[in-house]
Design a protein around this nucleic acid. Sequence first.
RNA 1: GCGGCUAUGGUGUAACGGUUAACACUACAGAUUGUGGUUCUGUCAAUUCGGGUUCGAUUCCCGGUAGCCGCCCCA
Length: 422
Amino acid sequence: MTDKQPLSTEPYKGVHDYYPLDWARVSSVFETIRRTLRLYGFEEYQASPLERAELYESKTSEEIVSQQTYTFTDRGDRRVTLRPEMTPTLARMVAGRRRELVYPLRWFSIGNRFRYERPQKGRSREFYQADVDIIGIEGAKAEGEAVVMAYEILRAFGAENKDFRIRMNSRSLINAAGEALGLSPLEVTEYLSVIDRKDKMSAEDFETARAVYRKNGTDPLELIEARTNESVDAVYQEFMELIEALKERGMDNVEFDPTIARGFLYYTGLVFEVFDTNPENPRALLGGGRYDGLVALYGGEQVPAVGFAIGVETLIDFLTTHNLLPQAVSGARLFIGTPTENDIASAQVLADSLRKQGVSVLVNVSGKSLGDQIKEAVKRGIPYFAAYGENEATSGSLKLKTLESGQEDAVSKDELVSIIVR
RNA sequence: GCGGCUAUGGUGUAACGGUUAACACUACAGAUUGUGGUUCUGUCAAUUCGGGUUCGAUUCCCGGUAGCCGCCCCA
């Protein structure tokens, strides 16, 4: 390589570098999500970000595949797509082992997704997401459980009910109302699209657009509200029971919101989104729903499924605005300083014994002065510092310095672990 | 994909079209110190890229690129 122009240090357009402190923040969020889901018996799976392009072409809209995926041809003339979402991969994996898996499946996966889009705040070309799915149960039970998991994940970060709202809608309900009015499935889809964009239109434009779908002076939403149609009302009652059941579990921030649409692609029943109650952050934190037809696309009979995905970047924005983001620690917990280079060897012995007890320790390896070693520990974001030289070796007692406060405590070697690990 | 705004050391800012592009922080080196975030000295380091106008461009114009904002879309 010639050195005419230095290579740019910028990452590729629309993607991010995560330096250790950044990544510590992201992965601590992963950890909380993981811990919460495991508590409820969910199992983690993983797959390659490379998928055959056909996986997306069969089920997703033309525009999304052609304009918003990274698709290329490999050296063996196979068309390859970088996964833009996890659900098709999940459906493929489930379909591949459909006879041997134990249902219901409670699965989750955390990883990166790729979409070729115009980058903006909260939207980049590579992003991290956690996908949570329950597969193999029909009806409100599983739907409720999915919503509960979304709720519990946010609660695990310390969020309170007042910090977020869970807005739920039912595609079956809208479909039933459309059917009762004699609208075609296509018209119902268009109607949903109009409702979805309600906030982006003026009141008059919305009324004009909505009027197209009125039959005998009533459109689907009005029919649902009127509660005059028996079959529509039955679906409505069932859905409200689900919402009531969630409220009884303490989730007083769930609500019925018929404007939640979720892209109209493969959802068949419940759709839901979670929003920050802070108006400065209007984006959905999380969204999902029921998608019963998807697995069957890969062969065999229909498998009921319900799930959601939570974007890590938007979650971090949410946690930041509510001051819930834990302090990220990227490296060691304790820095052992050495007054002279001769002390390094015995300091290493001490460090090794601490490591055996699970403490992450860094030992000075330079000839720097103790003052500079403290500076180094501070810069590295290490919370504790202790010098270990001849005095400490003979007395067995160390002065443990908490770098944030500057406080120093005399502690014995044996006490170190319990203080630092905490 | 469409439109608007922006682009100066690693970061944040400054510079009527006119000397060697300034300041602060950071980094690095040194002084001092068996205990840091204080001080002192020094060093590295920038006009996004390509054209154009001009005697002369960081400054004005056009284009590329990137970032931010809105639209489309958001699986």
